[in-house]
Write a protein that binds this DNA or RNA. Structure first.
Length: 571
RNA sequence: GCGCCUGUAGCUCAGCUGGAUAGAGCAACGGACUUCUAAUCCGUAGGCCGCAGGUUCGAAUCCUGCCAGGCGCGCCA
């Protein structure tokens, strides 16, 4: 791996820092961090290292900066370094010092910004995991898009990512689903039914009922006893829903490496084995839980039950693993699931959950600590709620009432690219107001068209060049140091920052950075385009500008691909 | 009552784990198409960074306490 210019400068400074600290007693050596200053006058890079050092050396920052500059051995590409403000060191590079890297972008192509690492850390990334009781709604869509993009960035930065979907195909909800389908099946046979409050009212249940009747005799269900009928219908309905969910996911360009069924955990006995193990490790005792806070519980009656000592591992209260009816709780299955991931060799797990599961994090992590000794596993990313509006008027979403808006409907209405890009324009910690009309609008309000337009524009120029018989010079022969205009410098800077941006996006699990970045990159390009003519200028300069355009197109394409968004050549 | 998330321009959001004069887009106003795609660009205006303390050379960023909004708090998943 070759060191970038930035790395070389950082190293040169770091060496001096270590030397200066030789005689100082300290347990920490401040690390040099180059930044890109906002103001052009502050040079190409700036370092604040003199400030933290000043405290340790008991000198004033500017003095320290002088000492550093007197001793540092910068690489040749550094034109000047001067002290500014309270003690910043501003570094200016030779004119065109970094423009060479543009050539690297074209040589690396799709790999620019990526890290090759076959030894990269294995990570299990679980996301979406929407219940198989209906189609995906918009809220699921956000988690899906974020998860998929995160997987892409982390892969690009050398992690080995395994994408997993946990199917909650066990528990009472499946019973409700099965019953709802059974009612609809009877209804389709003109049997009069009463549809209870608890059942799922959505029309998709009728579709599922129809589908099932296409391959199964009504009589065969009638012949069964109620329990096995519901079991059979549950299985069929889950399968139908998963087919639907997978197609919803495919519609936004998402596929998983593995779909993991909760049911199999129960059937294989893994859940019970887990409970037995905890029993034998003396982590379970008989006790009574206090009544819940928050809401009034009228008929609260304390029950004595077997409790898992999760409080010993950081949880607020101990948790039951078995319900009164003798079946396992969701929590029991979930820790069996995460334990299974661990057994499959994943020491690092990331789960993406909806904000409504926030209260669940501590108990799962506590359980995992008890079982595996791992700290803070799984690493949970909470995605805040999506508030859907149309022209500013909110939609009430309720799966129960059947009034939710499906992801599929939204994708059909506004398109995959707009959905994916829009979901990536905000940090996951902030709630998302998703307005259907705004997302659909093909105007400046919609950032996805802004960036796609930039890409298409570049290709328009390239095509024009081709049609005019312009022959692209060999990359190595292009004189990139001619790219000196303000707009060109800004654009080049944006292109150079790309690998750093990807690194933070991956390491900090902040894939939204990619979207923010592309918008800035597109802005830098549009500005360049407007002020610098590419075709028809003097040959050498034209070749340099064409190279810059190609590099820009490459980076836009790479970045959009990570977001699962198309980079069109014409619009 | 407790836990998690949020509060930055009229609106929607960035602000690179403490740096230099807090930035974009939309909306408003004023400009730029005989010239590579105007789905674009350039400019003007717009800010007690929720409030109050604290930490330090330096705070939108870290800590504490309030205020406001969202989510959650029995063997539902």
């Amino acid at each position: 791996m070759t060191l970038s210019l930035k790395d070389l400068i950082t190293q040169a400074l770091q060496d001096v820092v270590s030397k200066l600290l030789v005689d100082v007693e300290t347990n920490k050596t401040p690390s040099v961090a180059l930044t890109r200053p906002k103001q052009k006058e502050h040079g190409d890079y700036a370092v604040n290292i003199a400030m933290p050092l000043a405290g340790l050396l008991k000198q004033n920052p500017r003095q320290v900066a002088e000492t550093i500059l007197a001793n540092v051995q910068f690489p040749d590409a550094v034109a000047s370094a001067e002290i500014a403000g309270p003690g910043f060191i501003n570094i200016k590079l030779q004119a065109g010092g970094e423009t060479d890297i543009l050539k690297g972008i074209l040589q690396q192509g799709k790999r620019y910004g990526c890290v090759d690492n076959s030894q990269g850390e294995r990570v299990n990334l679980e996301f979406v995991s929407a219940n198989p009781t209906g189609p995906m709604h918009v809220g699921h869509g956000r988690g899906a898009v974020v998860g998929d993009s995160l997987a892409n960035v982390m892969k690009a930065r050398g992690y080995q990512v395994h994408k997993e979907y946990y199917i909650n195909d066990a528990g009472t909800q499946i019973g409700v689903l099965a019953n709802s389908v059974w009612l609809r099946i009877q209804e389709l046979q003109d049997i009069s039914i009463t549809f209870p409050d608890g059942a799922y009212p959505g029309d998709y249940i009728i579709e599922i009922a129809k589908e099932i009747l296409e391959t199964h005799d009504f009589a065969s269900f009638e012949a069964m006893d109620a329990t096995s009928r519901l079991q059979k219908l549950g299985t069929l309905a889950v399968a139908a829903n998963m087919t639907m969910i997978r197609s919803d996911l495919k519609q936004v360009g998402i596929e998983f490496d593995q779909y993991f069924s909760e049911k199999t955990l129960h059937e294989s006995g893994k859940v019970l084995q887990l409970i037995e193990k905890l029993e034998s490790d003396d982590l379970i005792y008989t006790g009574t839980l206090p009544p819940p806070k928050g809401k009034e519980v009228k008929d609260y009656n304390p029950i004595e039950q077997r409790l898992f000592r999760t409080t010993d591992f950081g949880d607020d209260v101990d948790r039951p693993l078995m319900k009164q009816d003798g079946t396992a709780t969701y929590f029991a299955a979930d820790i069996a699931y995460h334990a299974d991931k661990f057994e499959r060799g994943f020491k690092h797990m990331i789960d993406i959950w909806g904000a409504d599961h926030g209260g669940y994090i501590t108990r799962v992590q506590a359980a995992m600590k008890a079982l595996t000794g791992l700290e803070k596993q799984p690493e949970v990313l909470l995605v805040q709620m999506v508030n859907l509006t149309r022209d500013g008027v909110p939609f009430k979403m309720s799966k129960r009432a059947g009034t939710f808006v499906t992801l599929s409907e939204v994708v059909e209405e506004v398109g995959k690219d707009a959905v994916r890009f829009n979901f990536m324009t905000r940090r996951i910690e902030s709630q998302f107001d998703f307005d259907l009309e705004a997302a659909k609008a093909k105007d400046a309000e919609n950032p996805v068209y802004y960036v796609q337009y930039a890409h298409a524009r570049i290709h328009a120029v390239l095509k024009k060049a081709e049609s005019e018989g312009v022959r692209l010079a060999k990359v190595g022969d292009v004189n990139t140091s001619l790219l000196t205009s303000d707009e060109a410098s800004k654009l080049i800077k944006m292109l150079l920052v790309y690998p750093d941006m990807l690194e933070t996006a991956a390491d900090r699990r902040e894939p939204y950075r990619i979207a923010t970045y592309i918008m800035q990159l597109a802005a830098a390009f549009h500005s360049f385009y407007h002020h610098n003519r590419v075709l028809g200028v003097e040959e050498e300069l034209m070749q340099a500008r064409l190279l810059l355009l190609r590099a820009t197109a490459q980076v836009i394409q790479n970045a959009l691909e990570l977001l699962g968004v198309n980079a069109p050549e014409t619009m």
